[in-house]
Deep mutational scan, measured.
Amino acid sequence: KKVTINGVEIKFNNPEEAVKFALELAKRLNLRIEFHGDQIKIE
């Protein structure tokens, strides 16, 4: 399963991993996060 985070394609074994990764990243950098299907936007 491929997920695009800020235009960067990252391959994950499952979608939950991708979501956890994105949330952790957003929390660490104190950023806002948006989900659009397989696209995750962090700003």
Rank of each mutant, 00 (worst) to 15 (best):
K1A: 13
K1T: 14
K2R: 12
K2I: 15
K2V: 15
V3F: 06
V3N: 02
V3W: 07
V3S: 01
T4W: 14
T4G: 02
T4Y: 14
I5T: 02
I5P: 03
I5D: 02
I5Y: 12
N6M: 11
N6V: 10
N6K: 05
V8I: 12
V8W: 12
V8D: 02
E9F: 10
E9T: 14
E9M: 11
E9G: 05
E9I: 13
E9H: 09
I10C: 15
I10H: 09
I10K: 03
I10L: 11
I10M: 08
I10Y: 14
I10G: 00
K11Q: 12
K11Y: 15
K11L: 14
K11F: 15
F12C: 15
F12N: 01
F12I: 04
F12M: 04
F12S: 02
N13S: 12
N13Y: 08
N14F: 11
N14W: 08
P15Q: 09
P15S: 12
P15R: 13
P15C: 15
E16T: 09
E16G: 09
E16I: 11
E16M: 11
E17P: 04
E17R: 05
E17S: 08
E17N: 06
E17C: 15
A18T: 04
V19D: 02
V19A: 06
V19E: 05
K20M: 08
K20Y: 09
K20V: 06
K20F: 10
K20T: 06
F21Y: 09
F21V: 03
A22K: 00
A22Q: 00
A22F: 12
A22G: 02
A22P: 00
L23I: 10
L23N: 04
L23S: 04
E24A: 13
E24H: 06
E24W: 14
E24D: 09
L25D: 00
L25A: 04
L25H: 01
L25W: 10
A26K: 02
A26V: 06
K27F: 11
K27W: 09
K27G: 08
R28N: 04
R28W: 12
R28I: 10
R28F: 09
L29T: 02
L29H: 06
L29Q: 03
N30C: 15
L31V: 10
L31F: 06
L31H: 01
L31K: 00
L31W: 10
R32S: 05
R32A: 04
R32P: 03
I33H: 00
I33T: 01
E34M: 09
E34H: 08
E34R: 11
F35C: 14
F35I: 11
F35G: 01
H36W: 12
H36M: 12
G37S: 07
G37C: 11
G37W: 08
D38V: 06
D38N: 11
Q39K: 07
Q39W: 14
I40W: 04
I40G: 01
I40L: 05
I40K: 01
I40C: 05
I42L: 14
E43R: 11
E43C: 15
E43S: 14
